[in-house]
Design a protein around this nucleic acid. Structure first.
Lengths: 152, 152
DNA sequence: TGTACATAATAAGTACGCATATTATATTTG
DNA sequence: CAAATATAATATGCGTACTTATTATGTACA
């Protein structure tokens, strides 16, 4: 009683696997946010790190690369690389940590502060638009995503 | 009536922006599926392309790189690059299209067929586990993701 | 028929995202 | 205190993911 010639796939439409959908939506979102950030000369990862530095600076004493990595879930190596780029661009400064000489304290420059404030507005606007098609289901989506993140 | 020292962010917890959540969940998923596919020596993109070639071969006459690109939403350049790797690994073969000499017809080798059948089982199992924490909310998530994909 | 436009594939280049390994320094524990 | 262990940052290298530009070929239409 085969429904099709081939039985490799357990679903008739592999396009409807959650993983495949998640991956495709993220790629779509990434592609679009990349465009939205173009005027600022920032990539998405650069934006996330700048925004997180800003956020953490307001709420925490010392912002190290590891703290940033944990907060953004960008792996430490990528964090290091991206931060160097941001330093070259003049948006952040890195100095030795006061007590832990292994660590580096990261902070925004004035230029960095200016650009991230504008970029955050752009990204928040973009995000609202991108997810607006869901209407009140957005909360539902967020809840499910948070649940999935909870798996670690 | 400021709730915090800084008002750059419109939400108190930027961690709860849909975009940021989506990106983080996808990164988590990618990291884990990478591990799940390790025994096959396949990356996720390679898996997606192999699975799509298999799927489309069963349902369509000629599978070209553009058809694959449209189906997977992997951009044409990346598709080209990844397919070359898959060819080197001996999982696919590329030959000139019968009527359109610009195009290349892509097909699985016997080895490719064997490995993708096993890999699909692994990935479907992984996906089920990864999203199982959502229980019956998975349908809800899929629906929302499909809606978002509909934006193009 | 020829010319404008579209399409398929790829070259070259930038930037993640992650794995593994290394260096330097902290911290823990016997 | 010294040895074992953990942690912070980075060098190196692979594999996407995408941009812009190029080559070659197909198609439409005046």
């Amino acid at each position: 009683m085969s429904k099709s010639i081939d039985n490799t796939f357990s679903v008739e439409k592999p396009e409807e696997s959650s993983g495949f959908l998640l991956w495709q939506v993220t790629n779509l979102w990434q592609r679009q946010i990349k465009k939205a950030l173009e005027p600022y000369g920032l990539t998405h990862s650069q934006f996330v790190l700048l925004a997180s530095i800003h956020w953490l600076s307001v709420h925490q004493q010392e912002v190290t690369q590891i703290v940033l990595s944990n907060h953004t879930k960008i792996d430490p190596m990528t964090t290091s690389t991206v931060l160097r780029t941001l330093q070259q661009k003049g948006f952040i400064q890195r100095q030795e940590h006061l007590t832990d000489t292994r660590a580096k304290t990261v902070g925004l420059t004035e230029e960095g502060k200016e650009i991230i404030k504008k970029a955050v507005i752009t990204v928040e606007k973009f995000d609202t638009e991108f997810f607006s098609i869901l209407g009140n289901k957005t909360t539902e989506l967020n809840k499910n995503l948070i649940t999935l993140l909870g798996q670690q």
